[in-house]
C-alpha cells in the first residue's frame, strides 16, 4: 500500500462517517413514510360528528380529489394548523373531510363553533379504530386522496403555509386533471 494511501485512508473514513452523521442530523425520524401511499384508502363507515345518525364512509370520498384531515381537540398542533385549514376551505379548491380522532362530541363541536368549520363533513372516530386502519400515529395528519380513492400523499404533523402552497396545492391541481 502506498504510504500516502495509508495516511489518507483514516481521513477518508472519517469524512464518510461525518457525512453520514451530518445527513442524519437533518432527517426527522418522526416522519415515517406511510406504506399506504399509492394504495386505496382504507374503507371505513363512521357516524358523523355533527349528525350522529348520518354516516360518513370512504365511498363518500370517491369521484373527486379530497383531503382527509385527522384532528382532535386534545391535539395542540391541530390548534395551530386549524386557521390554515379554514383558509384553505375558503379558497374552495378541494373538499376537506375530517376524521375526528379519539375525541368527545361536545368538545369537538365546541371547537368547530369557536374556531370555524373547514370540513365538508367529519367522521367521529371515538375509539381510534379507523385511525389505526389509516396508520395514524401523530395528529394532525392530512391525506390527499385522488379521484379513484387512492391515497397519494400524507402530511404528518401540522400543515404549514409552505407545505400547502408548494406541495399540497400543486399536487391537488395535478390530480384534478387526471381522469378518474
Amino acid at each position: 500500500m502506498p504510504a500516502f494511501l495509508r495516511y489518507l485512508t483514516p481521513l477518508l473514513l472519517f469524512l464518510a462517517l461525518a457525512g453520514l452523521l451530518y445527513r442524519g442530523l437533518s432527517l426527522d425520524p418522526h416522519r415515517v413514510p406511510s406504506p399506504l401511499i399509492g394504495k386505496p384508502a382504507p374503507a371505513f363507515s363512521l357516524p358523523r360528528l355533527q349528525h350522529a345518525d348520518a354516516t360518513l364512509s370512504s365511498d363518500d370520498l370517491k369521484g373527486k380529489v379530497s383531503l382527509l384531515n385527522v384532528w382532535a381537540t386534545w391535539c395542540v398542533a391541530c390548534r395551530a394548523e386549524h386557521p390554515l385549514l379554514v383558509q384553505l376551505a375558503r379558497q374552495g379548491v378541494v373538499p376537506i373531510y375530517g376524521l375526528n380522532y379519539k375525541d368527545t362530541r361536545p368538545e369537538a363541536q365546541r371547537w368547530l363553533q369557536r374556531f370555524g368549520n373547514p370540513y365538508l363533513a367529519n367522521a367521529f372516530d371515538a375509539d381510534g379504530r379507523v385511525g389505526i386502519d389509516w396508520g395514524v400515529y401523530g395528529t394532525p395528519e392530512t391525506f390527499v386522496i385522488d379521484k379513484r380513492g387512492v391515497i397519494r400523499f400524507k402530511q404528518i404533523g401540522p400543515l404549514t403555509r409552505d407545505v400547502i402552497d408548494n406541495t399540497l396545492l400543486p399536487l391537488i391541481r395535478r390530480l384534478q386533471e387526471e381522469t378518474a
Partner: peptide, 8 residues
C-alpha cells in the same frame, strides 16, 4: 401492523 405503519 406493517400494512398500516410500514416496516418501521
Amino acid at each position: 401492523l406493517v400494512q398500516r405503519y410500514g416496516d418501521f
